[in-house]
Amino acid sequence: MAKHILSVLTENKAGVLSRISGLFSRRGFNIDSLAVGTTQDESISRMTIVVNGDDYIVEQVCKQLNKLIDVIKIKRLDDNDTVSRELSLIKVAANNKTRSDIIQIVDIFRAKIIDVSHETLTIEMTGTEEKHQALIDLLTPYEIKEMVKTGTVSIERGTNIISK
C-alpha cells in the first residue's frame, strides 16, 4: 500500500479537526500523519494528511472529505512534484563523553541544538521522513529521552498553488 499526500483547505472553525478525524476512524481509513495550521488567509486552515491505502481508499477519502461542508478544497499531491518537510524536537541524553559526538552528528544533518543541560541536548531537525529516520537511528545508541514530531507538511514545487 502506497502513501498519499492530501492537502486539505478547511474553514478555520471550531470542530473541523474532529469532523475530519472522526470521518477517518468511522470509515476505517488510516491516517499516517496529519498536520494543521492556518494559512495566509486567517479564515482558512490547511491540513496535510498522509494516508496509507490503495487508489480506491484514497479516492473514497477525498470524496468523503469533500462532503464535509467545512472542507473547501482537497488536492492529492504528486510525490514527485511536491516538497515535504517534517519538524521534530529530540531530547537525547548527553554527558561530557558523548556531547561532542552528538553535536557532530547534528552538524552532519544540518540540524540544530536548541537547548542544553548537564544531562541532555535538545535537537531541532527539519527534513523528510527518511532524513528523520536516519538521524533517529544514529541518536538511538545515546538514548533518546523524548521526541515530538509535527507530521509532514507539503507544498507543490514551482508556481502551482491550490486555488480555493
Binding site: 473514497q60 470524496k63 462532503k67
Partner: peptide
C-alpha cells in the same frame, strides 16, 4: 448528485 456514492 453525490460523487461519493459513485464507485463506492
Amino acid at each position: 448528485i453525490d460523487p461519493a456514492e459513485i464507485g463506492k
